[in-house]
Write a protein that binds this DNA or RNA. Structure first.
Lengths: 198, 198
DNA sequence: GACTCAAGCGGGGTACAGTCCATTTAGAGA
DNA sequence: TCTCTAAATGGACTGTACCCCGCTTGAGTC
């Protein structure tokens, strides 16, 4: 029997040049976002400034939202790191309910700090980060805080939506940001307290 | 002193032909959505099928999302009517906490029934229905159920996001719909119960 | 080093959202 | 009925996301 290359299995990783271009594109995109604002960055301009073809940009990132998602992902990794290994109560060590409250605060601050990017990385046509780290983390904490609840899954979905939705969808303008975000943090704490109270 | 036409004040209402065209466009759009699915309806095709110029379509509705929003609004009005004047607990007469739970159930069923349209009427670029009726209603019920809470405003925002976000943003595909929606309804009830419990 | 071929690349082409403005028309007042 | 003007209209035009496909190249294999 011959060793067939199975169509599933770990997809071979990116070729070196492709990886290089990806990194370069993300860097250029970040520059352009800082310079022009996310909503003024066009794919043509990005490709040109990166010295690459448009086709390459789309092959790497699939979609306009995809690029911004990739840029944001680098920040997101730092955030995740704080959550997984940083000091309590955001990091491990505190009771689940407290971690949940701390997570909400940190997440709201994170989103507010990267508002334009976060919005630009939304793609309503093909939605759902599906297994977004936030969802995963909230689900875990919720299961720990309310071990006897069924439906932790959908409840976690609703909590994440409560956390991210107002900023991503409902909050009008960036400039009215800070005040509202503070209020959102406070009411998130109320929400979590009552939800996890015995 | 002469009677100046003040730039504010009630904006003069639509001319008769404009109103006729708006109604006609909404009708044609509804047909096309039923026939092709919202995401396959283009503004060019809509204008052509309605026998009107493209400029007219955009003048009336501003944006692609605007049309779907207008189509959905007609259904939404029926929904609002049930909420405002229908039988309890969705309509008036029941305690606020119960009305909140009933509202969530009804809203989720409504969104599930009009999923494609609801998604198409989202506009991430210019977000916020600002004073959406749902937000208004949840805020009112919440203030009634928890009269001594401060921050009812942002909490209501978070609740609406918890209600609509999962369906609009996170839920993957239409076909996995019914089951998940049932679970969402149940966990919404848990959420409201705990939130309004003394 | 030479061969091979899937992965990657470029950039012209397409489709569609949204703008502009010259022309038409509703409808209020005289 | 006539006049006048703000509102409405149509459709050519523009900008941009995304597709397509022939050419190039990285990186395994001998």
């Amino acid at each position: 029997m011959e060793p067939v290359a199975l169509p599933w299995g770990p997809p071979r990783e990116e070729r070196a040049d492709a990886a290089r271009n990806r990194a370069h594109l993300i860097g250029v995109a970040r520059e352009m976002v800082a310079e022009l604002g996310a909503c003024n960055v066009t794919m043509d301009a990005l490709a040109e400034r990166a010295g690459l073809g448009k086709g390459t940009v789309f092959r790497r990132f699939g979609t306009r939202a995809g690029i911004f998602h990739a840029v944001l992902d680098e920040e997101e990794a730092l955030f995740q790191h704080r959550v997984m290994t940083g000091p309590a109560p955001l990091g491990p060590g505190a009771p689940a309910a407290e971690r949940l409250a701390a997570f909400g605060r940190a997440r709201l601050e994170f989103l507010a700090a990267h508002l334009a990017l976060a919005r630009a990385s939304l793609d309503v046509a093909r939605p759902v980060p599906g297994q977004s780290p936030s969802l995963f983390h909230v689900r875990m904490l919720l299961a720990e805080a309310c071990p006897d609840d069924a439906l932790t899954g959908t409840l976690a979905l609703q909590l994440v939506a409560a956390l991210e939705g107002p900023v991503l969808l409902y909050l009008q303008r960036q400039d009215e940001g800070p005040l509202v975000v503070d209020d959102l943090i406070t009411s998130w704490q109320v929400l979590v307290e009552r939800l996890t109270a015995r």
